[in-house]
Write a protein that binds this DNA or RNA. Structure first.
Lengths: 222, 222
DNA sequence: GACTTTAGTCACATATAGTGACTAATTCGC
DNA sequence: GCGAATTAGTCACTATATGTGACTAAAGTC
């Protein structure tokens, strides 16, 4: 992870998020040189490359494949130190399915609730990444791409619960899902050991629900 | 606006928005050198300065005062040309009241609907700025700071309508306002020429309304 | 066959939004 | 002075959305 000041003073950092067994996890890289230091995957930008292309490159170097969803979080540079001594870092958040993406040597998934100490600037990126991802969940169907082509509604709900970090009411979840016209049932059922078999669904967005919704005075700060 | 590559390859660009008579306006600077070119106010970042501090500095240079609200939009650098030939630009959106903020020489307010041609990268910033600002309106009471300490509810509603770019229903607006506990009536009334005098209100956030609101499957794209 | 477990659905209460119509207090024109 | 016009403020009804408990269904376990 040493390619100091190759083509600019800004780094591209990526917060790669995945849904592991029962918890969210983030990919960290073992810091070159220093013994037990961990850093977010990052690279210097290359000339003539868009920011997004650079972020995808960083993800590929770490996992061998591109994320299923990615979005820029912003530029970070408020005085805090970055591992690469860059003045500013452009951070991205991205989601990857845990099954297919296996970290290359030097990279490890860490549960979000149990991250090793990382540089303050990168800590801020992680927090912003999770906030941004959670805020997108009800705007874009990104959770579906973490699942296989067919899935049960319970699996889908568990995915949402994991990403959002909170429990959801079953009936309410399914009602909302129905209103969004995003999934359609297949004629297959899967018996998962214990209880009643669950019907398999596939992601198949139909029409768009009308986009009303007035102004909401649901202020976050006074 | 020439201080090429002073301390980094990134510029700080700011989209200053104000509510003019009956339309939104954005502050542009006459481009140095080139005859009738306009650019967003921008500067190179200075060493040891946070991004936000730099943005405030740019706003002060243009208007003589700091914005009432500001937020970073993100980093822009996807191959499009920036007037300063920087690789990337960190863009901010900010609001200023039109009455108190008078542009310095070389800066001019342009109605959003009638902007002169500007660089593509900056055009993208303007669009993102307006989207971001509109998205914040129902999360934070930023609109109030465009108004004097006391104001009528019609004035407040007109401000929201201007910023959002759409009409709002009077009864609905007031009901939402009441539910948010953000304003309190004064015992003053103002007669504004034509109709019935309007009561003056002041911004006085009371308690916070409970923060529920479940997941919404209100997807923006299929 | 009774009990447990997971899936799937229903029904009701409550909260939030959309909207037309009404009343109130002023100015304007005459 | 008086009615029309204008702007402020409120009400009431409808429609939609959300929160939530309880129910039925179909499997495994013992």
């Amino acid at each position: 992870m040493r390619e100091r000041s190759r083509s600019g003073s800004h780094s591209i950092d990526i917060v790669l998020i995945t849904a592991m067994a029962n918890e969210l996890a983030i990919l960290l890289a073992r810091s070159a040189g220093e013994r037990e230091r961990w850093v977010l995957p990052w690279r210097h930008a290359q000339a003539g490359e868009t920011l997004e292309a650079a972020a995808i490159r960083v993800a590929r170097e770490a996992l061998g494949e591109a994320p299923i969803w990615m979005e820029q979080i912003g530029a970070f540079g408020d005085g805090r130190r970055h591992p690469g001594d860059t003045e500013i870092s452009v951070a991205f958040v991205a989601l990857v399915p845990h099954e297919t993406a296996s970290p290359r040597s030097g990279y490890t998934w860490f549960p979000v609730k149990d991250l090793p100490p990382i540089a303050p600037r990168q800590r801020a990126m992680v927090d912003a990444a999770i906030r941004t991802m959670q805020g997108r969940l009800d705007q874009a169907p990104i959770a579906f791409r973490l699942l296989p082509p067919t899935f049960t509604l319970s699996e889908l709900q568990q995915t949402y619960e994991l990403l959002l970090g909170k429990r959801l009411h079953k009936a309410s979840f399914r009602r909302a899902l129905q209103g969004a016209w995003l999934v359609e049932p297949t004629d297959e059922w899967r018996s998962e050991g214990r209880g009643r078999p669950a019907q398999l669904f596939r992601y198949a967005p139909k029409k768009r629900r009308r986009q009303h919704r007035g102004i909401r005075f649901d202020f976050l700060y006074p």
